[in-house]
Every structure is written in C-alpha cells, then in structure tokens.
Design a protein around this nucleic acid. Sequence first.
DNA 1: ATGCACCCTGTAGCAACTACAGGGTCAAGG
DNA 2: CCTTGACCCTGTAGTTGCTACAGGGTGCAT
Lengths: 139, 139
Amino acid sequence: MAHAPPMTIGDLAAATNTRVETIRWYEKVKLLPATERSAGNYRLYGPEHLRRLSFIRRGRDLGFTVDQIRELLAMADDRDRSCAEVDTIARAHLAQVERKLADLTRLAHELRDVIGQCGCGSVADCRIIEALSPHGDPS
Amino acid sequence: MAHAPPMTIGDLAAATNTRVETIRWYEKVKLLPATERSAGNYRLYGPEHLRRLSFIRRGRDLGFTVDQIRELLAMADDRDRSCAEVDTIARAHLAQVERKLADLTRLAHELRDVIGQCGCGSVADCRIIEALSPHGDPS
DNA sequence: ATGCACCCTGTAGCAACTACAGGGTCAAGG
DNA sequence: CCTTGACCCTGTAGTTGCTACAGGGTGCAT
C-alpha cells in the first residue's frame, strides 16, 4: 500500500476532536510546526502531525499548560535525555491539581452550608447574602 | 465620636486584601460605584464602599463570577425581593463546583497512575511520555 | 458556471485581572 | 522652601487558551 494522502486541516481537526482555529493557533504559538502547503495554499498534514497533535490534546485534557506541553514535547523529541525532568513536571502538576482539589472541596462545603440555611424568604433575611456580607453586617 | 475620615484607595486595598488596580477595575466594570474625589483627584471611600468590596471579595473567594456577583449585589440592594433567585444562583454554582471537583479527582488519579510508572530511565522508554502519546505509539 | 463546503489571513473578543508608562499630589525632613 | 519618596491618576497592553468573526480564495460536484 502506498502511504496515505496528506490531510487537510479539517481532516486533522476531525481526527483529533479539535477545532480548526485551535490548530492554526497551535501553529502560531509553535506547538505545531508550520506545514507544507498545497498549490492552493492549504495546510497539508501527515501522520506525524496527527501524532503530535494527539499528544498535545491529551496533555491539555490532563490539565498541563501549553508551556508545560512545550517542555514535554521538547523532551520527547530528544529521546536520549533523562526522564527525570518529565517526572518533575508531572509531579509538580499533580501537586498543583491536589491543591486545587483541596480548595474546591473546602469551597463546596462552604457553599453547601450557606445553601442549607436559606429559608427562601425575602432578601432582607437571606442567609446567603448574609454569609457573603462582612461578618454579621448590621445596618 | 465624629465619623471616620474617608479612606484612600490604598487604605481600602489594605483593608480588603485587594490590589489597588483591581479596585479601579471593579469601578470600571461597575461593581463599585464611581466615588467622590478629593481636591487632588484622589478617590475617597467610606464604610459603605468597604462593605460592598468585602462582599465582592468574599463572593470571588467562593468562586462566583463577576456577573454572578453583580446579580447578587442587585438582589441584596433590593431587600424586598424574594430570596429564591439568590438560592438558584448559589445552587447552580455549587453544581458547577461539584462537576469541576469530579473532573479534577479523575485527573489526579490519572496523573498518579502515570507518575507511578516512571522508572526514570531515558525518555526513550518513559511511561509518562508514552501515556501522553496516541495509544502505544510505535516508531 | 454556479453553488457550496471548505480553506486562508488578520483582528478582536472572552475572564479577571496585572503591569507598566508617564505623569500629578502630598506630607515629612533638611 | 524645597526636595524626596510614597502614594495617586489615566490609559494601554499583556496574560491564558482559545473562539468568533470579516472578508476573501479554493476545489469539487452538478
């Protein structure tokens, strides 16, 4: 079998569940290389672009920032390098996710408390508003 | 006791743990009213501004958007109105927080899995990079 | 040849601020 | 009185990660 014909940006978008504009944006910020163009100036993509974009999307789904992905890609491109840096980035990211998780958990508790107290009368004695006001606000 | 002298924007910032620029920005987007000015064109704030800004900051800490806070403030200003809308906003927000919590929990699991597998050899056989790559990527 | 789906570039917008640049004001110390 | 330094002013541009046009060109089917 001959190798598959190049994909257009729309094909690549469909294959990776990404918007066309997002792909062009990744190119602009150099997560993806500028590609060859067709006679009509269309971007043409091959399987290596598909692989790279899939990597990027999976990283984004896992909550890595674009900068972190840039670093991860640079490391992945240099296969002799030690894996330790990759590990470091991943661990730092996990720590950050865990911090955010703790914050949100606390926040959910507070919100549940506040909502539980609302008797749904008039705003004048709404517990939610009161909870937001500087503690016990008279006036 | 006579009433306290007006605060400058810096005083208000210190009292609410807010940056000066943020206060000016809240004024621009009409969360805070434009204030009186001193002879030298300095903004002057009184206790009612302190109360309003505290409310805003607490709402932001609880993760309400600026738009939601704008609604909450409008309701709080109209004390005869029913509390039901306040309750609705708070519940919608809680639901959103809970969704985000679920996402992050799943994400933390995935990250921990991936990190656990890293033997910290060379990138060539790094499990983290592999986990990000389109499934099992040969080449 | 004409429609229609697709592609191109470039710019502006979103949230919620933050960070200047390039000035003016005010109180204290010398 | 004058200077120094901390504060204040406006206005604009930057941040993150896209998304949404506007105003065009391309490619294929009918």
